[in-house]
Design a binder for these strands. Sequence first.
DNA 1: TAGACGTAGA
DNA 2: TCTACGTCTA
Lengths: 157, 157
Amino acid sequence: IFVKSGKHVIGDIPGVEVGDKFQYRVELILIGLHHQIQGGIAYGNFGGKVLATSIVASGGYADDLHSKDSLIYTGQGGNAKNTKGPQDQKLERGNLALKNSVQKNPVRVIRGSELLDGSRTYVYDGLYLVEKYWQERGPLGKLVFKFQMNRFGGTGK
Amino acid sequence: IFVKSGKHVIGDIPGVEVGDKFQYRVELILIGLHHQIQGGIAYGNFGGKVLATSIVASGGYADDLHSKDSLIYTGQGGNAKNTKGPQDQKLERGNLALKNSVQKNPVRVIRGSELLDGSRTYVYDGLYLVEKYWQERGPLGKLVFKFQMNRFGGTGK
DNA sequence: TAGACGTAGA
DNA sequence: TCTACGTCTA
């Protein structure tokens, strides 16, 4: 699976293997794994349809990353960081792209973790499929989107 | 003039000439001109005294950059960007360092400018001395610090 | 122009 | 932990 639209690619990136590690987000961009300098959800326009191409799960939100071949990813937006305070997440941008990708196209998953010294490591974890999505109340009492993602093509690597 | 304290250096950086241009802030760090990834005022501890080592003037504040051999630099903080809203600037961090440097030690000046395509260029403009500082009302109605800086050692290059 | 799971130093 | 004249994409 390899669908290209401009600089946006659905599927594996040639030359990048599951388990490959990176230190900085900008490396993910350079190698083509992810196309947002800070955003967790990258997406592109494929024949008029906006689809998600990759996500980075690195601890910024309350994701469920306990399992090896599945994860529950939290949508973007609504944080208290901005001056507006906590808000309900909207079905736009990355959230809309992930919704459009449900049971449709594989999404690259990069798992990030923070080391004791504060530095971070980003590991490419392969392709996942968005099984379903729903809304629930997040830690701040506002509505957030949750995306159930399972390893694409079974549990084997 | 070249005073070193840890990674902090007062004065010119060997190998860096006035007029040298850079594209990214990280380059300034790598070459040793400036030691803050975003902050406009870099400073260090020199024998128990916190002194400013370099500043970047790139349009983020209402600086007066019209003259070639002098400039009026605005202190940091109090912006509306943070969730607290506009506030009076405090004599701490970089502002305190610049105050401590008044008529004392030269400060490296990097002038940044934004191009039409949104990209930026940073130019090393040599050493300046902080002549004096004062407080005044800024565009947001809050108190800001102003630092009068003149080219160190006269107007000649 | 605004938003974003950044990044380093104090 | 918080701040900071960043940087890129949509």
